[in-house]
Simulated scan of single mutants.
Amino acid sequence: MSTVTRKRYLIAAVALGLATAAISVSAATADPSGAPTPRALNGVGSDTVQGVENALANAITDGSGTKLLGSWDATGSATITTVPGNAACTITRPNGSNAGRNALENSLQANDGCLQYARSSSLNLTSAAPVPLTYVPFAIDAVTYAVTSGSNVPRQLALTDVKAIYHCDPNYVGTAPNYSLKVLLPQAGSGTRSFWESTVGITDADVVAGKYACISDKFNGQPIEEHDGRVLDNNSIAPFSIAQYIAQSSNTITDHRGQAVLGTIDGLTPTVENGNFGVTREVYNVIPTSKVGDPQYASVFVGPSSKVCTNVTILNQYGFATDPNCGSTASHT
């Protein structure tokens, strides 16, 4: 199919217009429970990697069998308390990679001992952190677009087509104010949002400023949580982590796919071998640079023999591919 034919097909198909059904969006929590309280290393942030991090937190122990990681979910109660008895450690629950990083920075600046690391599904080295941070990769994910099983959007697109959609090209999405295609992004602060924006060649500043008027990050007036296919109708499109899709489809984590199915980009079908997919990314644990050599941090996060990197079975169970750079400390603010 030529690019022109594909454009005509897409805009004609989405013009059929199917109504959106009301959906109640919720999320389950799996915050740390059981001894010890608190954990030695408490982390917050990315929704994309919280499931695999929760599993790692239950598996990783020190020499005496004591659990080391406390991984707090991105959604749930409004606040969390990472260290009972310390008022400073009751904070607004950070939702997303940027929120997790910011919470970690705040804790490190205050030296309150509330947070020791953050989960991130994107690399953010654009500005120096108040406290130097190191992004330690631990697995590979891939991201594609999701549509419904009965979508009017083609299930196979070139990356150039996906970019055109997210640039609100009228040949693909129709014209204002009633766009034929609903172009969706997850909530502000999401690592998947920033990664997808980079992939399709747009900036968050332009999105926020309304340059791309066909794009929305709201569903029924509420922010869209990443990897929640229940916000999709037959005329919408959204980015979706392949690892998340795999883990949800096997009920390894809560299934929020709804009618979502994954699209194929440039002829590469998204499968469990997501490390070979065209649009890949590393996912990270963000730690204070000053702690890279600390024995406890290093044993968990740093180097290919670290506890995170050697738990390959868990990484694969949650849909992630192994990362040859696992444990590297090369990326830092």
Rank of each mutant, 00 (worst) to 15 (best):
T313H: 09
I91G: 04
A128F: 11
A146C: 02
P84F: 10
P170A: 02
P186S: 04
T329N: 03
T61A: 06
T75N: 12
V272P: 00
N311I: 07
Q296I: 14
R39C: 01
A35C: 08
S122R: 14
A19G: 09
G150P: 00
A188G: 04
R101E: 14
D255C: 07
P154G: 04
D228A: 09
T192S: 05
P94M: 07
G319E: 05
N98V: 12
S306F: 06
S127G: 06
A22R: 11
G293K: 06
F301C: 03
S127K: 10
R93H: 09
N316S: 07
G34F: 09
A238V: 15
A30M: 00
G113I: 01
T199I: 07
G258P: 08
S194R: 09
I224G: 05
M1A: 14
G267L: 13
D217G: 13
G51S: 10
D204I: 07
R193A: 12
Q187G: 02
N316I: 06
N311K: 13
L184W: 03
Y9L: 14
I165N: 06
A35E: 08
I314E: 08
S328T: 11
G221T: 06
V279P: 00
S236A: 14
S127V: 14
S236R: 08
T126K: 00
A209F: 02
K7L: 15
T5Y: 12
A87V: 13
S216N: 13
P38N: 08
S120N: 08
I165G: 01
A321W: 02
L157A: 05
I60S: 01
A57L: 04
A22P: 00
I224S: 03
T37H: 05
G278H: 07
K67M: 01
L18C: 12
G17T: 10
K211F: 05
I91H: 07
T329L: 08
A78W: 00
I314M: 08
C309L: 10
V300I: 10
D323F: 10
A19V: 15
I265M: 15
P132Q: 03
H256F: 12
A59P: 00
S120H: 03
V173K: 03
G65Q: 01
P177D: 03
Q248H: 10
E273R: 06
N106A: 15
D323N: 15
F277M: 13
A158Q: 09
V302M: 05
V286G: 01
S151W: 03
T289Y: 09
T264H: 06
L262I: 06
V292L: 05
A35M: 11
R119M: 14
V25Q: 14
L115P: 04
I165A: 07
Q248W: 12
I202E: 06
